[in-house]
């Protein structure tokens, strides 16, 4: 039973990987970027768990900066994805411009909040 489970899982991962290879490289870059942001946020949370939340606004701005960027990147991915029929008419350049603008606004707030 257990054997079959691990095999199933292996098969599942195999199919996932093969499907992901087919993803366009631009989306892969975005995925990588999202992972980078999320891991940075996780490290900050761990740091806070270890030493306490004293400069709480700094912690919040750090984490929110990462999470915010990640969310924006995900949004970008949704809009850039060609499979996504909903945004078919939206050129990826326009989506990238939105991404840049949103990031700049987000980071203005973050910097203001950083203290």
């Amino acid at each position: 039973m257990a054997r079959s489970t691990s095999k199933d899982a292996q098969a599942l991962f195999q199919s996932l990987r093969s499907a992901y290879v087919a993803t366009p490289s631009s989306l892969k870059i975005i995925d990588l970027y999202v992972c980078f942001a999320v891991f940075t946020a996780i490290i900050q949370v761990v740091y806070m768990a270890v030493v306490g939340s004293f400069p709480f606004n700094s912690f919040l701005s750090g984490v929110l900066s990462c999470v915010g960027t990640a969310v924006l990147a995900v949004c970008l991915r949704i809009q850039v994805n060609k499979e996504n029929k909903e945004f078919k008419d939206l050129p990826p350049e326009r989506a990238f411009a939105d991404f840049v603008l949103c990031n700049l606004v987000l980071h203005l707030v973050i910097m203001n909040f950083l203290g």
Binding site: S25, C35, F36, Y47
Partner: peptide
């Protein structure tokens, strides 16, 4: 932890290289 923060960034760069960007 400052060093640790840099790790995902390095990972990001390595990933970019592997993707052949």
């Amino acid at each position: 932890f400052l060093g640790l923060i840099l790790l995902p960034f390095i990972g990001f760069l390595i990933g970019l290289l592997r993707l052949g960007v």
